[in-house]
Design a protein around this nucleic acid. Structure first.
Lengths: 247, 247
DNA sequence: CGTCAATTTGAGTCCGATCAACCGTCGTGG
DNA sequence: CCACGACGGTTGATCGGACTCAAATTGACG
């Protein structure tokens, strides 16, 4: 059930069988189905407990009074949200589904046990939240400094690598179920300009799109073209040194 | 020593005398002076432990190969950085001082004791890191969706309220030791345009600048003009309900 | 086959960037 | 005491990337 999360965490350190089992159990307790394009939590609501995306895509977003919308983060399969958030009185942003989503609500008590009984797991979960923060920072840089072309390419590189980290790529291809309007709201551009920039990327042969299928035939070249440095994803098996303790 | 941090945390919940004392002790163990415009940690370095800004302004930033720079976050007096970061292998961004900075390095062991022995404090520290994350998200929105005018006004509102939360305002005035170039790198604009937008804000009477002194004579009006909603700062004494246990 | 959403195209406009110069202040050193 | 240079702020002119508005086309689906 928690396969994607487990797979992701193992980019950081190897988990024991019990670790994996415990995580899997925790994710089965309370599951919920969300329809596509539905709100999961709204700004102003009481913050929910820890939530794990089991399948599908969701996003954090914020809307201004005049309708402008910014997508703040993508929540992909295996992503966690809102570690300690119940401390706050109300949500300062909304979370909505993009596709159909299956999620698990993990009760605070279960989280406490999980981290208390499984030190390795606790560490891996901290890693996951640190990476989430790093991604948020990189988005600031992306939107603040890069051109439309770079922003878009950068976004695709990130999505590809994040999907790869949970095993959701086949070769150079992955599913990206986003409309151009959603992409626009993500990187702070207009739909029209996203469309034109997509064409540019395609014409150079740096990306290929067939329906929702995104292919990056020359990832290296794309990374160079848009100054993408994957270091902020901290995916290079950081916890290798921890494997020693483990069979 | 840790006055600013204590003051800030008490926006969330009241601390006991021991809480405050413990925090103060922790901040005295290892102190460091940084000169203005100096790097504290550089991208690629080994991440440092928990660091507390005792005085002065610093910032997180990232530089692209061609020299473009984005300031990702401001670290003001009372701000903490890098809670769990030693888990990561290397920094994905740099931290540099803007003014002269005094900081405290708090050893991991001290942090552990602090949070273990003082539940209230532990909660307040989580609150502080959640707020930091919320600010990061808001910056994404600010840069992604708002006009130059709004971005600048929004930044000033945020800075004013954050400084107020640590007692660094007098009336409607606060010190903002930033050059226009730094502001430009913060909100993704050119220096020239920042200059012109500043003039616009001044001419409407929404801000006044005298040297490094920023005055917001009509904060309410400014907030309305730039669609600033302070909810993401979670400063409205959230933990009031916790005071019951305390004298 | 009709409808609605998403994508694409075109034309015109504007916000903000760039380039380049100029001014004021301040610290340094002759 | 003054010359000098550095830096931050200011101004003007021009350019260009991205936006807006509007319409046409494609595609998915009942």
């Amino acid at each position: 059930m928690a396969d994607f999360l487990i797979r992701k965490l193992e980019n950081f350190s190897r988990l024991s069988t019990e670790d994996r089992h415990a995580l899997d159990q925790a994710s089965r307790q309370r599951m919920r189905q969300i329809r596509p394009r539905d709100d999961i939590v709204r700004e102003g609501d009481l913050p929910p407990g820890v939530t794990l995306i089991l399948d599908g895509w969701a996003c954090r977003y914020k809307t201004l009074e005049d309708g402008r919308r910014q997508i703040i983060a993508y929540l992909l399969p295996g992503d966690l949200c809102d570690h300690g958030v119940p401390i706050l009185r109300e949500m300062d942003h909304s979370i909505g589904s993009l596709t159909a989503v299956t999620l698990a609500e993990i009760p605070p008590e279960t989280v406490r046990q999980l981290t208390a009984d499984h030190a390795r797991l606790a560490q891996a979960l901290t890693w996951e939240s640190l990476v989430a923060a790093a991604i948020q920072r990189e988005w600031t840089v992306n939107i603040g400094q890069r051109t439309a072309f770079e922003r878009l390419g950068h976004l695709f590189c990130e999505l590809y690598l994040r999907l790869q980290a949970v095993g959701l790529t086949r070769g150079t291809t992955c599913e990206v179920p986003l409309t151009q309007a959603e992409i626009a709201d993500t990187i702070g551009l207009s739909v029209v300009h996203v469309n034109r920039t997509l064409q540019e990327l395609r014409s150079i042969g740096l990306i290929a799109l067939r329906g929702r299928e995104l292919t990056l035939p020359r990832l290296e070249a794309l990374q160079r073209a848009v100054q993408f440095n994957p270091n902020y994803l901290h995916l290079d098996h950081e916890g290798r040194h921890l494997d020693a303790n483990e069979t």
